[in-house]
Amino acid sequence: MTVNILFAAKPDSWAAYETPLKTALRDAGVFADLRTDFAPDEVDYIVYAPNSTVQDFTPYTRCKAVLNLWAGVENVVGNTTLTQPLARMVDHGLTQGMMEWVTGHVLRHHLGMDAHIHGLKGRWDKHVPPLAEDRAVTILGLGALGSACATALAGLGFDVTGWSRSPRDLAGVRCLHGDAGLAQALSSAQILVLLLPLTGATENLLDAANLARLPRGAVILNPGRGALIDDDALLAALDSGQVGHATLDVFRVEPLPADHPFWAHPSVTVTPHIASETRPASASRVIAENVRRGEAGAPFVHLVDRKLGY
């Protein structure tokens, strides 16, 4: 029996995903008709990006699951017409890319590389960094991405603390949770990495009060979601020296507007949302596995908890 799969994303994504998806579905033993133009009542699965033209899921009466191409689901999870199971993207490419970006920038700030890259201008300023074991790194968010980054940094010898809403256990990482745990996690964070999902509970989590809990001069890395940070509070903390530097990959508005203060601030590094990206080949295998599971009557993986929002 042929499974009808609607690809609902921006047109340029179809060119990137058509061949990898068809290959992955075939390799998974799924006989599929993959197209961009099914009638809604013919669709068994939707491979989905939240910026697609599909916003009303009501007509998709036989759809068994909506399979998100992005790790983030904040732009779709609140859609009241979406009653089908919703799976977010968790794949090797996303995880590996994020781990490489986070590890690279943690090491950059730990070693003080910016001073040498930009030049000491004739000054023999010999500043020897501490060993990794003497540098406290805190990661907020211990999902698939946060856990991978925490494990990698712990493997390099960093003193790693991880925080999550609910209890977690990760080898080599001090795991904290809840409101009291958050205050403790922030208080020791010489380098703070934000990898939380964006929900009502996490928006503006890094506000003036929580920025004040950081050790003075702390570094912030945000490859998670732009709205995790109160922008005005961060700029004030940078100006006062409470925060020493912020390396930001995600923003409330993207591309970051040309007149945004982050561009000109001497203690901000902007990267253009490149910390992690869905790779068509690896993401297609995740999609194909979920379709295979659906057809076999097995549980879907990476399902979104609607109440939690991720």
Rank of each mutant, 00 (worst) to 15 (best):
T2G: 01
V3Q: 04
N4G: 02
L6Q: 15
F7D: 01
F7R: 00
S13Q: 13
W14N: 05
A16Q: 14
K22H: 09
T23F: 02
D27P: 07
G29Q: 05
A39C: 04
D41I: 10
D41E: 12
N51E: 14
V54A: 11
Q55N: 13
D56Y: 04
F57M: 07
Y60P: 01
Y60T: 11
R62G: 05
R62D: 10
R62P: 01
V66T: 07
L67S: 11
L67Q: 09
T80F: 00
T83K: 13
P85Y: 06
P85C: 11
R88V: 05
M89W: 00
V90G: 04
D91F: 03
M98S: 00
M98H: 03
E100Q: 14
T103K: 02
H105S: 03
H109E: 09
H110T: 07
A115L: 12
A115M: 08
I117R: 08
H118Y: 11
V128G: 02
R135E: 14
T138F: 08
L142Y: 01
G143T: 03
G146A: 02
S147G: 14
A148P: 08
A148R: 07
C149W: 05
A152I: 05
G155V: 14
D159V: 04
G162T: 04
W163H: 03
R165H: 14
D169R: 15
G172R: 09
L176V: 05
D179R: 12
L182W: 08
L182H: 10
S188D: 05
A189K: 02
A189H: 01
L194A: 09
L196I: 09
L196E: 05
P197G: 10
T199D: 12
A201F: 03
N204A: 13
A208F: 00
N210Y: 06
L211C: 10
G217P: 00
I220T: 07
N222Q: 05
P223Q: 07
G224P: 03
I229H: 09
I229D: 00
L235K: 04
A236T: 10
L238A: 04
D239C: 02
D239P: 01
G241Q: 01
Q242A: 13
D249G: 02
V250E: 03
R252L: 13
P255D: 07
A258T: 11
P266D: 07
T271W: 08
P272V: 10
A275V: 14
T278Q: 07
T278W: 00
S284E: 02
S284L: 10
S284C: 10
R285L: 15
I287Y: 02
I287A: 02
A288E: 02
R292S: 15
A298S: 14
V304C: 07
D305R: 10
D305W: 12
